[in-house]
């Protein structure tokens, strides 16, 4: 009998070891025993990572929070369908990506223009970048470059943009992105490469890149 089976037989066996339990174990625990502490641990674990993805993709802090909450609401609703052993991270991202796309489509009319996508960013959110660039001139130049790059990213096709977000910014593996977006792994690789080439061309036109 392996460890997970033992834990199931013992009910809330994870209660004392939530921090060390794997994502899969936490979700098993919530599915089988309705252990809210396990669910809360999972939400806390992905709070920064998923929020960052949604914030970058949606370009709006309030929308990102809304979709973040909606993502875990769906996880709760679909937890009975979760199969033990299935990696949780791609599953979570899969839910979040589709929620974000839905939100984007639904609110297309209200989509903030590219130039303003990070205009509503609060000081806390920007803290890491501000700390990295103490020279005002350097910070202004970086901000200008960032704006141009964001514009270039916005011009990418939807799937390509998702690939760039998930692989580069979120650090997901090609295999995971392939599973999340439902496209072959070769397509993920080639589209990411094509995206970088395209970004480069767009930035050359804008005079940012050589």
């Amino acid at each position: 009998m392996d460890a997970i089976v033992v834990e199931r037989c013992q009910g809330k066996a994870l209660a004392g070891s939530l921090d060390t339990a794997t994502d899969e174990q936490l979700l098993d625990q919530y599915r089988d025993f309705g252990d809210r502490a396990a669910f809360a641990a999972l939400v806390r674990r992905y709070e920064r990572e998923l929020y960052t993805y949604l914030r970058r993709y949606l370009g709006n802090a309030l929308a990102a929070e809304d979709v973040f909450q909606q993502t875990f609401m769906l996880v709760h609703q679909k937890v009975a369908q979760y199969e033990s052993g299935r990696p949780v991270r791609p599953w979570l991202y899969s839910v979040a990506v589709h929620q974000a796309i839905d939100y984007h489509r639904r609110d297309r009319r209200h989509w903030l223009p590219s130039l303003d996508r990070f205009a509503g960013t609060n000081k806390d959110e920007m803290a890491p970048m501000a700390a990295a660039l103490s020279d005002p001139a350097e910070a202004a130049e970086a901000d200008d470059t960032g704006r141009l790059v964001r514009e270039a990213i916005d011009k990418l096709p939807e799937t390509t943009r998702q690939i760039v977000m998930l692989v580069y910014f979120q650090g997901l593996k090609y295999r995971e992105v392939s599973e999340i977006l439902g496209i072959p792994m070769g397509t993920v690789k080639s589209q990411l490469h094509a995206a970088l080439m395209k970004l480069n061309r767009l930035l050359q036109i804008a005079g940012v890149s050589e």
Binding site: F39, E65, T121, E125, R150, L203
Partner: peptide, 24 residues
């Protein structure tokens, strides 16, 4: 260099305080 440009464009975002608790 190109990847670095991407990083400049999309800074890390800090989640609003209490997001996980509100979600739960």
């Amino acid at each position: 260099d190109r990847l670095q440009l991407l990083h400049c464009a999309m800074p890390l975002a800090v989640p609003p305080r209490g997001l996980a608790e509100r979600t739960c």
